[in-house]
Design a protein around this nucleic acid. Sequence first.
DNA 1: GAAACAATGTGAACAATGTTAACATTTAAT
DNA 2: ATTAAATGTTAACATTGTTCACATTGTTTC
Lengths: 212, 212
Amino acid sequence: MSTFYGTIFLMNSKKQNSYHHGNLKESLLTTTLHMVESEGLDAITLRELTQRLGTSRSAVYRHFESKEALMKGVIEQGYTQLDKLFTPIFKDKSRSVEERFERMSRAYLEFAMEHPNLYRLLFGERFREEREGICDYRDETQATGLYALIGLLLEAQEVGIVEKADPMIQAATIWASVHGLASLLIDGHLMMSDNLEEIYRYMYISLLKGLR
Amino acid sequence: MSTFYGTIFLMNSKKQNSYHHGNLKESLLTTTLHMVESEGLDAITLRELTQRLGTSRSAVYRHFESKEALMKGVIEQGYTQLDKLFTPIFKDKSRSVEERFERMSRAYLEFAMEHPNLYRLLFGERFREEREGICDYRDETQATGLYALIGLLLEAQEVGIVEKADPMIQAATIWASVHGLASLLIDGHLMMSDNLEEIYRYMYISLLKGLR
DNA sequence: GAAACAATGTGAACAATGTTAACATTTAAT
DNA sequence: ATTAAATGTTAACATTGTTCACATTGTTTC
């Protein structure tokens, strides 16, 4: 995912010998996201963050009410990145429904495993309040949540590879499976990295089989 | 789950007018578990904890190397409680395999929803290191992890309601589904408490259907 | 262009947290 | 009874997020 953060270093560097940073708010969001990804949620301290940007701690409070408000902004950025990653897969009408399904679940799991810290930020136990209003699965414009999955399910129902039933409930079923596997893996509950592919295949196949 | 903590109040109260507490280590573990359950992980501070027990903060360090070591002890207690809850369901040979399956998954989900904070402590993102060595699914004596589920799956394969395949992988598939649903629910990703029963039923049925 | 104002950044302080070290008290062992 | 070990206390420390008074820069208004 090098494309995600390609512009970081330009944005982070403070304008030389200037009192004002220039675009501190943006830099704060981007750098925090970067730090979360590479070092985890616990590594985020305002001191470390502002030190990297060459500003003082209290400068943060000119742009965000609190650290949590900053994190809320970072979460928003994270979901945007997710959308950018997933929307093309969902909307790629050149591929069959089956293919899109397969690619979708794979991409989801891969994202979780390649960016465990970011995944925990977006879907984990912390920042539940900060997430409110950001990740609404009923928002049609968001591919992140359940909504895009529902569209795909409706197509799948037409093609006949998924039984006709409430797509919302089917989407929840699928999301639960994939999110559950991702969570168990990145949080160290399933220590089976050797046969991960096997597990994934079995889960994916039996998942579709169960929905047929 | 009132039975869990029936003895707390006796154990927590300090021996009157005595320098030594009596059983501080036990009280620390029990009270912390209680606090986690009722107020969440963030509410656990050594100050609040020791104040409730009538001791000083630093007394904790006579029994635990650090706060994290204390939490590790609490996690151990939590898994013990889970085992006590689940083992009878697993081993109740008076019931059919189907019944035990159904009761098991229900009990798991109910536990997560009734004790979300405790569930997060045991299975969430935090305390991954502290969990190490405690929750090993390969330990035959633990009903908590995958092992008991594997036993049940072998029975189910005999009866014919589950196809013959690697039970470890099947167990991972089931656990992922149930854990995924539980996590999404308690962390506010599925705001559908009204039709929760419907979702659960659909997921459970399609899960079994997929494994057949 | 100068003055007034808003936006943004700084430095010193604060309270809350986990942790440690030196000392006190009780219990157990010899 | 004396000594040693176990257990608890007090005072301090470093780290964290946060706030407040002040400084600097950018923008608007006349």
